[in-house]
Design a binder for these strands. Sequence first.
DNA 1: ATGAAAGCGCTAACAA
DNA 2: TTGTTAGCGCTTTCAT
Lengths: 349, 349
Amino acid sequence: MPRPTTSSRRVTIVDVARHAGVSTTAVSKVVRKASGTSAQMRSRVLAAVEQLGYRPSATARALRGRTYTLGVVLPDIRNPFFADILDGVTEHLSGTEYQLLMSSSHDDETGEQRVTDAMIDRSMDGLLLVAPIASRVRLQRVAHTVPTVVIGRHGPAAGYDIVADDDFIGAGLVVAHLAGLGHRHIAHIEHDEADPIRRVEMPNARRADGYRHAMRAHGLGDRIDIVSTTYNREGGYRGTRLLLERRDRPTAIFAGADIVAIGVLDALTEAGLTVPGDISVAGYDDISFARFGPVSLTTVDQAGHQIGATAARLLLDRIADPARPTSQVTFSPTLVTRRTTAAPPRSPR
Amino acid sequence: MPRPTTSSRRVTIVDVARHAGVSTTAVSKVVRKASGTSAQMRSRVLAAVEQLGYRPSATARALRGRTYTLGVVLPDIRNPFFADILDGVTEHLSGTEYQLLMSSSHDDETGEQRVTDAMIDRSMDGLLLVAPIASRVRLQRVAHTVPTVVIGRHGPAAGYDIVADDDFIGAGLVVAHLAGLGHRHIAHIEHDEADPIRRVEMPNARRADGYRHAMRAHGLGDRIDIVSTTYNREGGYRGTRLLLERRDRPTAIFAGADIVAIGVLDALTEAGLTVPGDISVAGYDDISFARFGPVSLTTVDQAGHQIGATAARLLLDRIADPARPTSQVTFSPTLVTRRTTAAPPRSPR
DNA sequence: ATGAAAGCGCTAACAA
DNA sequence: TTGTTAGCGCTTTCAT
């Protein structure tokens, strides 16, 4: 009994070489479009590649050269802002040989580390870390191991390129807008941050600082009111519940992220409060949902697409030349005024 | 001048073997928890692994054995329903050695093929294809190359395991609900599907069929009204615009997916129509946004979490035994009634 | 229980 | 321009 002919062994470079009657080196060169091949050789090899359906094994390649794989680590797939960033990355990468593979850290430091290590183990050519929560030392170590670009984290360029938005300014735009409408009691829901380094480097902390600074600049320093929860829908919901329990309720809530604002609106709807009639709400990120008709959220546009495209460009540059000096690109956010913010209700106090 | 000691060469199995004074075979066995190692050997090796910070190279492993990598291909990261599925997958995989890596096909057949091939090239141990649009032949070929589980696609088990929801029944639940409220003109927005095979296998087509069937069952066969666009927000918006242009407007719109319903609500808001006062809207998927206060969308719960967990289980089973017979798991959807559906407005016609 | 050695598919010196 | 050969880091027979 002969074994089945459907022995689906992978087609290797040896098969192609034999089929084309040339050496494996020749095949390798042609496939990689390297120099030193005659037109005749190229056509023979390419014909064999075509006929046999040969595809180079990225894992075998990895042992010698590139994998043509770029890893993206996201804190959370649910936050649509990250999808905007990814669109920018994907667009910049289209047309290149590189394949994007992503994974979520599930907003967890251990998870982030696991995923990052896993990508290094898999010989990725470069890493794109979106709003990572790892310590700076750890980020430096990662960047030392593999070309890395960090998105959405401030602080000194420490061995890796950084692309971010100026969150301090962005928060100021929101406060200015609300104060301009006549609000005095503007509360802010932030992502809890204990680590001192991260207090400076993480976008959420920068936004909270920007809020504080702007409140003072508008003579509202004594009305600073921050609730610390987390940057997700649940955090917005919980934060709002806490605010509503107070005797002195705010007339406006500035959520540190749109996804948080969603939770805020959840809680307000549940409490029977109208927006912006009873209370104004502003977010941050301008996720596509913000311009959803029934929501129409006032927010800050971070240009995620542009951030992603820039990060991809920097990563390719760094892969091409790992020694080039690191750079920090900071974009300026813009305020997007929609229908969740208005003047505060009459009869104050 | 000695060369810098920071020669950050990766720690390999050879380094560990030398450090522990044993063979690389021994290290390999210990690391893989294979049998045939003494307790003493194990502790020596593990100590060396710890001290040197050794991590096995997944790419090198790939040439002989496993990569412990599972690939997930999603049509679109923006659809939150897929995040639900991923949660289920992730949960089932936590505690295993497997690492999940995902990529988006951007709702494009070529893109899907590119991504799938890329994952095969990277020696993934298994593939999870979510609502793939590839032909059945192509899916079979993929499944023949690597253990594959297909999520959200119907049709005969053709070499791969299938986990799906009964979309035909789900669509029926929606129609029954709307008809029960008194609606007669119930329009459906579907994802355009020309390919005959896919007309049978794709969830969107099954939903459209379920809609047709249920309309007839409720004596509304002559009111069947389908608009073909795409399963995204834009598709919902466009479809609704088309419906609103008609002289005989529907009193209810059944969108084939929640993300489509979002677009429907966009268009209705823009047109100054109230929901459900002027028109009822139902979706499909029960994405977390559906229970967002200001939206509160009536929809169909697909239990994405359960689908994901089941798919992950089947994939691990298949990797363990590629020859095992394929199975099809179908879940029954349930209707979730919220505030976007109500009786049609008076003064009909 | 332990280790030597071959080899996975590819790339890169080096020769011819 | 072309081919020979030696690895890359790991797993796996096969001896011992």
